[in-house]
């Protein structure tokens, strides 16, 4: 079985796995990082969203071989030194979480947007999360939370 080396949550790791494994499978089953969820397996729901080189991508549509040498960030890598990331704080403040299943992917999509565009308009926030389906919140408090991050 091949060895794959990549940077995961700011640490270089090497794993031995099979080429038919998706990044999602490796994260959840081999690395125990279960914050990344599977909701549809076809790139529609965004529950499996991770950042690949700072871009939001569906980890259900990435084979593990494709991340060799790349940077992957999952929800587990977002807060540093026990301090919540500003997006996480605002999600709490605005009640942007209900069942929480879409939340990790949603937060990562928001983080990717803000990384690229620190002061997005509301329409841009909505566009950035169309790939993250949420059935509980109607998105309103999520959008409010992301907009609030821009206010500091």
């Amino acid at each position: 079985m091949p060895k794959i080396t990549f940077n995961l949550n700011n640490k270089d790791i090497t794993i031995t796995t099979a080429y038919n494994r998706r990044l999602l499978d490796v994260l959840r089953e081999e690395l125990g990082l279960t914050g990344t969820k599977e909701g549809c397996a076809i790139g529609e729901c965004g529950a499996c969203t991770v950042l690949l080189n700072d871009q939001a991508v569906n980890s259900c549509l990435l084979l593990i071989g494709q991340v060799e040498g790349q940077n992957v960030l999952t929800i587990e890598g977002l807060s540093t030194k026990g301090e919540l990331h500003p997006v996480q704080k605002k999600f709490l403040k605005h009640g942007a979480v209900q069942c929480g299943f879409c939340t990790p992917g949603m937060i990562l999509s928001a983080h990717a947007l803000l990384h690229k565009n620190p002061s997005p308009k509301e329409e841009e926030v909505k566009e950035a999360i169309t790939g993250n389906l949420c059935r509980c919140t109607g998105y309103k408090q999520i959008i409010d939370a992301v907009m609030d991050v821009t206010k500091g």
Binding site: R28, E29, L33, T34, G35, T36, K37, E38, T74, I75, E76, L78, S79, L84, Q88, F91, L92, K93, G95, V97, G100, F101, T103, P104, I107
Partner: peptide
């Protein structure tokens, strides 16, 4: 009043354990 969710912290950090997260 506006009160932060009881289970918010584990949900925004990805620590909340859903059924498929148990092995």
């Amino acid at each position: 009043k506006n009160i932060i969710r009881q289970d918010g912290l584990e949900k925004v950090t990805g620590q909340a354990k859903f059924a498929d997260d148990y092995t």
